[in-house]
Design a protein around this nucleic acid. Structure first.
Lengths: 237, 237
DNA sequence: CGTTACGTTGATCCATGTCAAAGCCGGTGG
DNA sequence: CCACCGGCTTTGACATGGATCAACGTAACG
């Protein structure tokens, strides 16, 4: 069912102070002095599509900030099938739960080629002791995760298969410039939307036939955002 | 569709230091000195079933800690129908998002008679400035909300109508002693589970007929927790 | 060139949505 | 005290969307 891969690629020690997405991520609230307190290095890693960032139950020794790519968090059900509970991309933080517990609560698996920064939990915990700026930033991340969960429930678990697919395409396109997005396997698509692989495939095929979406390369789709939005909006009324 | 009520009942100024649920709520990390810093009072309020605690878009001037009862958070869809995105009860905090934004993101409506403590956001913000114990407590609340969102997606938005109903009954019974729980209207039940009112009603009626649940007073149900758990577990495999 | 994984399509069945009507219960007013 | 009314629940009949099971197509890869 799932390929087992562990070939994460280390691509260097991060230069957090000069990071080009620092304003959006966990360390937004920190200054130069704080960074000197980070004794342990922040590593940059790469994962190919399908590779595992961490597994549910693993020791939570690191947080990860996503620099590029797309990561799914899944619960595995007793029968081995998965239910994806969140999709995360650029500037999202994953593994934040191990600030509180000691193991990861989900399995995190890259759906596309993904670059991350790996932060030692111990460092973040030390920083958080006296630093209320970090407080605000971390809260903001929790808040965003929770808002995403709300949208997930209202938009991606509600309505017809076709509407759910369209809402996901729109959701994905929000995080990319232009009117396009990259998709992933039909199995994962179904797991996101609470549908079977077949229904996911049929919905995609139908949207293609109707000319509402265009696949210009494998799993790269472009579409008229306004038109799609109108479809799901009218359908909701 | 929804009764409009604003008749919240003030039942006194809370004595936080001696609160019997303090260990579980937002102020778990505070000591006597911190409480002296809380210049503005923490009020206790009561809401009857159906009454509105706050509306989406209202000015977020207060957080609420639930002491007893059950509260739904809803998104209203363009057609006026609702999708409930979370159910909250004893020791849960609602409105925490206004620590970051300035308006509430959901409408919060009591589903049962509910007692809450109302905390001024300004006080909590002042406390949070230098207090890293509060940091941990607040994080823990975000974490729990998010875990609940995960369960919501995997358990309450997945599977057959019957299974979803059973999982909700089990979820509700976790927060009450004994093997029973209070339910609410079939319309709300449907909105929780992503089903129509009719399907929700049918599923409940069938469970009653099969003797799997017993209604000893209006919307008070008791059941064999182990037996119900076995049903949804075998159904998941 | 065969193998394998994945995507697509078809046929069928069943669960749930939809529309409609009837039952039930509590509240209100005569 | 009873009759009526309105809201909520239950039930029925029917339509349909999605699941299921199965087959076939297709692209990547050894």
């Amino acid at each position: 069912m799932n390929r087992i891969t562990s070939a994460e690629a280390w691509t260097g020690v991060a230069d957090c102070l000069n990071c080009n997405i620092r304003q959006s991520v966990l360390f937004a609230g920190l200054d130069e002095a704080d960074f000197r307190d980070l004794h342990r290095p922040v590593d940059q890693l790469q994962f190919a599509a399908g590779e595992i960032v961490y597994r549910a139950g693993d020791d939570g020794v690191s947080l990860f900030t996503i620099r590029t790519g797309l990561v799914k968090l899944t619960h595995y059900l007793p029968d081995g099938s998965q239910r994806i509970v969140r999709l995360l991309s650029k500037t999202d933080v994953i593994g934040l739960e191990c600030m509180l517990g000691d193991v990861y609560q989900h399995s995190a698996i890259a759906l596309q080629a993904t670059e991350v920064c790996r932060l030692p939990v111990s460092s973040v915990k030390r920083l958080s002791l006296g630093n209320s700026r970090l407080f605000h930033t971390v809260m903001a991340h929790w808040y965003r995760a929770l808002s995403d969960a709300d949208r997930w429930i209202t938009e991606l678990s509600t309505g017809t298969a076709r509407d759910r697919v369209i809402r996901l395409l729109l959701w994905l396109s929000e995080r990319e410039p232009g009117n396009s997005c990259s998709l992933f396997s039909r199995e994962d698509l179904g797991a996101v939307l609470g549908l079977t692989t077949e229904t996911a495939s049929r919905s995609m095929a139908e949207l293609k036939r109707q000319g509402l979406i265009r696949e210009h390369s494998l799993n790269r789709f472009s579409f008229d955002i306004i038109a799609l939005r109108r479809i799901v909006e009218t359908r909701m009324r």
